[in-house]
Structures are given as C-alpha cells and as structure tokens.
C-alpha cells in the first residue's frame, strides 16, 4: 500500500497540525475554555487530507531555503481559509455531516457557526501579519484573502445554477475553477512566492495546481455517484439532490434515455425520481467520460512538470500528480 501523501513528500502531518493549533492558541484575545476555542480545535483535530497546506509547502520548495518558513505561513492561512469556507459551505448546502461527524452548525447553531468561520478567516489573516517581518508577509495573508471574492463567485454560480440542466461544460468549468481549482493553484504559487520564487516559476506552479484542482473536483463529483454515505462521511448523491449540476450530469444529459429523468428533477422532486435518475447515471458512460475528462487535466499538470525538469522539486510534483490520478 502506498504511503500517505505527506510521507511521500517528506512532510510531517503533526507539524502541519501543530501549526494550525498554534494559530488558534496564540490568539491572546480568545477565552479558554470557550465554545469558540473548542469548536475550532475540534475542526483542526478532525483532520483531513491537508492538501492545501501540503501544496503550499511543495510550492515553497521552489523558492529559497532561507525563506522556506514563509511558505509555512502561507500553508497555515490557506488551510484556515479552506476550513472556514467548509463551515460556511456546510450551512449553505444544508449538510449535517462533515467527515462522518456532526457539521459545526449542527453541533452549535447557524449564527454561531457563521461567526466561527469568520473568526477562523480573520484570525489567520491577523496571525499572518503578526511578527517582525510584516513587509515580507503581506503577500501571504492579504493577497490570499483577496481570493475570497472569487471563491464566493464560484459558490454564487453554483447557487444560481441549481437544477439548471442547461448548464454548459464551459460554465461548469468556470464554476469549478472558481470554487476549487483557483485555491489549489494559489496554494502552489503562494508557497513559491512566499519562499522567494520568481514570478514565472510561481505562474507555472499556479497552472499546475489549477489543473490538479479541476481533476480533483471532478473526482469529488464522481464520488457523489460512486460512494456510500459511510464512505463519504456525508450523505451520498447529495449534489444531485441539491441540484448541483456536475460533470457526470452534463454528460448524462447527452443520453436521450436519461435526459427526461433528469429534466423532471427539481427541489421538490420525490426520492424515487432522484433514485431513478441516479441509477441511470451510474449505469451510463457518464462516469467513465468524466474520469477521462479529469485525466486530461492531470495530464496537463504532467506536461507542466517538464518546465521543472532537473529541479529538485520535480519529483514532488510527480508525487502530487500520481496522487491526483488515483
């Protein structure tokens, strides 16, 4: 069995978690014990793949060793930004579970969870500009925070296109870029820039991360059709039930036998109607076509690696591609 991604990249998961806890624990204005403290701590200890900080740290290897610690700063901010967005996404998606456990808003209440998400974002940004090297750290926090608007635009798109079965492939890709791929691209380039890599290198790493991000989102879309609720740690087939039009649905709509089953779906459609449409998609070629489409993006990422031929970080990029190809 393959080693976990962080081990393949010689990164310590406990160091990453320690950093995330440090951001919380070093907030001297935060009361302990408190609901806020225990909630954020619980979110951190619940774990996760930590793909975003891992990507930032890999990006940091394309800078200079003297500035490598600044890539860690980017890694911390990015994971907090991601965790905060998950808290808000779970409310927006009305999803009661996250990684098999109660989502934060289900464990507290919606108002509290929204403010906890906000706190996480604000605290990470405050932390990123603490310390002596404020000038150097500006990119890390502030430019990354500027991405929030685009992440939101991806969410607005998704909201606006619920049950819009006329969504085009181009629109789907645009939404996917904003919602997921942009942040993954930013992880790679932010780590690199923070660590002092030049713009051209950071730009190539952004393209690399963005391509992997699109592949990742498509694979995530596929899991909605192929995994059980137990495997996902959240309700399966939730995307379609919420009206989120993902790539398998777009491909299934091209099949004249499945199209009518999909077009009859709406927020008030019956469980039987959703189950029938889901079964039809699962038995169609839409899933395979989606997998092939995702592979095009991992191949694009592979081609970008050629730019880094001979660089000590080249192997790390290969490891990332192999991970996303799984």
């Amino acid at each position: 069995m393959n080693k976990p991604l962080h081990e393949q990249l010689h990164l310590s998961m406990s160091e990453i978690n320690k950093l995330l806890l440090h951001i919380l624990q070093s907030d001297h204005e935060l009361q302990r014990p408190s609901l806020l403290y225990s909630s954020v701590e619980r979110l951190i200890l619940a774990g996760g793949k930590r793909l975003r900080p891992i990507m930032a740290l890999v990006g940091g290897r394309f800078g200079t060793p003297e500035r490598a610690h600044l890539a860690w700063k980017a890694a911390g901010v990015l994971e907090y930004l991601h965790m905060a967005s998950l808290v808000h996404d779970d409310i927006i998606d009305d999803s009661p579970l996250r990684r098999g456990k109660q989502a934060l808003h289900a464990a507290t209440d919606i108002n509290t969870a929204v403010h906890i998400g906000n706190y996480m974002l604000a605290r990470a940004l405050e932390w990123s500009t603490e310390g002596e090297s404020i000038e150097e750290d500006f990119y890390t926090g502030t430019e990354l925070a500027a991405l929030i608007t685009e992440l939101c635009e991806g969410e607005y798109d998704q909201l606006q296109h619920r049950f819009n079965f006329n969504l085009t492939l181009e629109q789907y890709l645009e939404k996917t870029k904003r919602k997921t791929a942009l942040l993954m691209g930013a992880c790679m380039s932010a780590g690199a820039k923070a660590a002092g890599a030049d713009e051209a290198v950071a730009d190539q790493l952004y393209q690399f991360g963005e391509a992997l991000g699109i592949a990742f989102q498509i694979q995530d879309d596929l899991l909605d059709f192929t995994s059980s609720s137990e495997q996902l740690g959240k309700p399966s087939a939730a995307d379609l039930r919420r009206g989120n039009i993902t790539l398998p649905v777009i491909y299934a709509l091209e099949d004249e036998r499945i199209k009518p089953l999909l077009l009859q779906l709406h927020s008030g459609a019956s469980e039987e109607q959703f189950d029938e449409a889901l079964a039809a998609i699962r038995h169609s070629d839409a899933l395979d076509r989606s997998r092939q489409f995702a592979e095009q993006y991992t191949l694009k990422a592979k081609r970008i690696i050629e730019y880094f031929a001979g660089h000590p970080g080249e192997r790390d990029l290969q490891v990332l591609v192999a991970y996303f190809l799984k």
Binding site: H88, I92, E143, A146, I148, L151, Y156, L159
Partner: peptide
C-alpha cells in the same frame, strides 16, 4: 435556505473585497 445562503455569501464576498481593494 436560499436567502440564508445569499446572506452568508454576501458577507463573505464583501469582506474578501476589502482585501482585494486594499491590495490592488
């Protein structure tokens, strides 16, 4: 849910815009 989602996103978007504006 629709209005709740909008109000959460609107708040997030406006806060993100502070950073975009100040950086630019």
């Amino acid at each position: 849910n629709e209005r709740l989602a909008r109000s959460i996103l609107d708040g997030d978007y406006l806060i993100g815009m502070i950073y975009r504006l100040a950086v630019s």
